[in-house]
Nucleic acid binder design. Structure first.
Lengths: 255, 255
DNA sequence: TTCTGATGTTACGTCAAGCGTAACGTGTCA
DNA sequence: TGACACGTTACGCTTGACGTAACATCAGAA
């Protein structure tokens, strides 16, 4: 029923859709100007101008004296409300923080969104050197420990998410299809995925899935740390803590 | 033309405007259903349905199995991005936290928005009993310590923001126009406004303005505390800390 | 200086996008 | 078994939103 592909689903209001495009574009490129948006979205300038004026009037974006646009106050209000309304984030946040405190490393909550993994909550420890995480940042599903999200999908859906050619990020990146499928199989068995520098050199990342009762994957949580201070024993400890945290989140999501 | 009071500025896209209405409505009323939105916004159900579908497809709202709507993941991402893009919030946040730590009471950052004061950042101390603050919450401009925002406006603009009759919240609320103007004069002189239960009984609130170089008011910061543990000496201390914090914010906003 | 090619903006006539009406299917409470 | 909510679909009509074109303004190049 759900068209995952780009089949244009009717019944959506195009002008609203474009307005959302504009809004998300401003979110991604602060201090962007009208012409650039117009170019990137591939819509006429008058159209984009009307969109921006509408968004501005409601405080979703703000125009500087220099004519550049940023997100506005209403967007802050919206986001704050959203954090309390999205069950997954509300429930996982304190658990993620506890996890981060115990490991003293960066922890993230990630979901599948539009064929990528999307960070929707994070914890960063108070120490000088740490892995940086950012809400809204997208990463591929087929590389690094986030492939745990892939591993727990039905094989059919899984295939659709894996591109024909696997781009290489580092020496450790898996670029062979058969090897990737083998790895996914292992991940599914072990319930954990560890990446040693598959996406970024010198970074170890450990992810486990957050599962619903029916076994479907809802999200992934992970701990990421610099390789130089991460022994095998740490990875093992992180794994246990992650599995514990994931179980807690699953339970509380129960409803 | 049936524009009575608020001359609608042309050049805005109505369907986008209504969609924003819907979005903000969902933000304010989590788990609302189609019919209720339709009633409240006063638009037909098919229209709202089209709006919601468009918003849902982009992840701004999410529909539960029961047919109710909440904000979605995209809204979280948007809000997080906004927090880093709005200068005032980005700069004031750490200063607000420092202020809150020192006072061990709730601190807020508020701006004028649509004739009301709007909370766009906050700090709440870690103690059992504290004043609750909420980003997005609106309060009147003409009562409580937030009238500091009013006090630093040009008299002309000021008048437009003061309603003909001043509603009473508590026994201490100022409901007399002349008295209010007198109070605003005092506030402007002293650079601080203290409310002893003007809006909520048993609550003391101290606000100071955040000013631009030209003396125009950008925002207000305040500390709010239960009356029973707030001596005059505390109010004095808060005032000093607030003025210090406001000066810091002003300076860093300098550019 | 003058030219050139950006920028944001306004105006307006055209056309289809998006509207409301009406009818549908479904569920829940009397 | 009604009665009345709910969400949803279909479709023909109209008006809202579109793009074109022309405008004003600025910055750098010639």
């Amino acid at each position: 029923m759900h068209d995952v592909a780009k089949e244009k689903t009717g019944d959506i209001i195009q002008s609203v859709d474009v307005a959302i495009d504009v809004l998300l574009h401003v979110a991604k490129h602060p201090d962007i100007r009208l012409s650039d948006i117009s170019r990137n979205i591939e819509e006429t300038k008058p159209r984009i101008l009307r969109m921006l004026r509408t968004l501005e009037q409601r405080g979703l974006v703000r125009k500087s004296k220099m004519g550049t646009y940023r997100l506005g106050n209403t967007a802050i209000v919206l986001g704050t409300a959203a954090s309390t309304q999205v069950d997954l984030v509300r429930i996982a946040s304190p658990i993620l923080e506890e996890l981060g405190q115990k490991t003293n490393e960066t922890a993230q909550l990630r979901i599948i969104d539009n064929g990528e993994s999307l960070c929707i909550a994070k914890f960063e420890p108070m120490r000088d050197l740490r892995v940086q995480a950012m809400i809204g940042r997208r990463r591929p599903l087929f590389a690094g420990s986030y492939k745990v999200l892939l591993a727990f999908l039905q094989p059919q859906v899984q295939m659709q998410m894996i591109p024909a050619t696997l781009p290489r990020f580092t020496n450790s990146t898996i670029t062979n299809h058969a090897k990737l499928l083998q790895e996914l199989e292992n991940v599914r068995k072990n319930g954990v995925c560890v990446s040693y520098g598959e996406v970024s050199e010198q970074l170890v990342s450990v992810s486990v899935p957050v599962l619903a009762f029916d076994g479907s994957v809802i999200a992934a949580i992970n701990v990421a740390a610099p390789a130089f201070r991460t022994q095998q024993s740490d990875v093992n400890r992180y794994t246990l803590l992650l599995k514990d945290a994931a179980a807690k989140i699953s339970a509380r999501l129960g409803w």
